[in-house]
Design a protein around this nucleic acid. Structure first.
Lengths: 191, 191
DNA sequence: TTCCCAACCGAACGATCGTTAGGGTGCGAA
DNA sequence: TTCGCACCCTAACGATCGTTCGGTTGGGAA
């Protein structure tokens, strides 16, 4: 993929994140590149291509974050690292993450199913961490791990709306982690 | 507001939630009402009107939920009721809530500022509950209430993506509440 | 020096968009 | 019986949309 082509995808992701897929015209993307809109079709076949590529990049980034977590860590540590990874992806690739999280429904055709499958797989990988934590006794035995994963994933998925680039996402993830694991009540944190 | 007019707003909210504001055409809304698209302009002045009214209805519903929480309750109970209220609004008015949460950025003009102010005020009301809980000693004294509110609000705001109408939202809210307050760790729940 | 090819231009295409205008219909109040 | 009004239709408007196409350009490989 040529440098120019990557610049095109980057600008498209930026505009899709800012104004939405349907709210962004091919003309605007071309203008961001300093080019006539017809010229874009030397690089792409359709506007959908740009959406798909941004989504694929998002899926790749989120999964790569989980892949980097050492298998031998305790389940709770894996959860902590998963939170860190997720927030870091959002902060570092805010445009891509924003599009990945909220523009996927405008994907059409076969590609849509593929991306949706990647999204489901990501959620399942997170859920598995909580299940593992419960089964290994690191988390309470009566934990409803589906609800727990839902809570953590929901909070993470919402992050694109308030995370600003440059934030200390590791620290923030650790704060989330501490709240989720030990709770907010006064008596819940023995030292 | 006439019955026909309310039906129009309802259908618009449904389509905006399903296909997005820019992804929904006036023609589609008209078709849902069994009417020619030009006929809609006997009821509205512009497509923006429909978006604004859905947003305003969302703001009203979310705030009304908080208004109904008795002032004399302990802060932690208020938090539990706030979670119940939020999830109930999402489940009962899924279309309106979906639009309120993710289509606000397509609002234009003065109305946009008004709706944004209502969104900020809602977040501030939630944050105040956690602050109150900490100050009254119901929550741990070292609680980072901004982060705590962010965590709870993020999870709630994401609910429109997975909540299905007819779900037992009170039960789900209580499960979220229990996880947030007491944590997921094994030793964190004395009886 | 020739050739290739990625990149872009300029102009146009049909389709669809939100909106407007003028006229019609039927029902409830006066 | 008349009137007003809510509601709808048909037709068209200009604007903008995504996309196509033949032609041009410039720099690196041969």
């Amino acid at each position: 993929m040529s440098a120019r082509r990557e610049e095109l995808t980057r600008q498209a992701a930026r505009l899709f994140a800012q104004k939405g897929y349907h709210g962004t015209s091919i003309g605007e993307i071309a203008e961001a590149l300093g080019v006539q809109k017809g010229s874009l079709y030397a690089h792409i076949e359709s506007k959908q291509d740009l959406l798909y590529e941004t989504m694929a990049e998002g899926a790749r980034a989120f999964h790569a974050g989980l892949d980097a977590i050492p298998e031998e860590l305790p389940a709770t540590e894996k959860i902590r690292f998963a939170l860190r990874s997720h927030l870091r992806v959002v902060a570092d690739q805010l445009d891509v993450a924003t599009v990945f999280v909220q523009e996927w429904r405008y994907l059409e055709g076969d590609r849509r199913e593929g991306i949706l499958a990647e999204r489901r797989r990501y959620e399942e990988r997170i859920r598995a961490l909580f299940r593992e934590g419960r089964e290994l006794g690191e988390l309470r035995s009566d934990l409803d791990d589906a609800t727990a994963a839902l809570l953590a994933l929901s909070a993470s998925n919402w992050a694109y709306t308030w995370l600003r680039p440059g934030a200390d996402t590791d620290d923030l993830a650790d704060r989330f982690y501490a709240l989720l694991l030990d709770g907010m009540r006064g008596y819940a944190t023995p030292d």
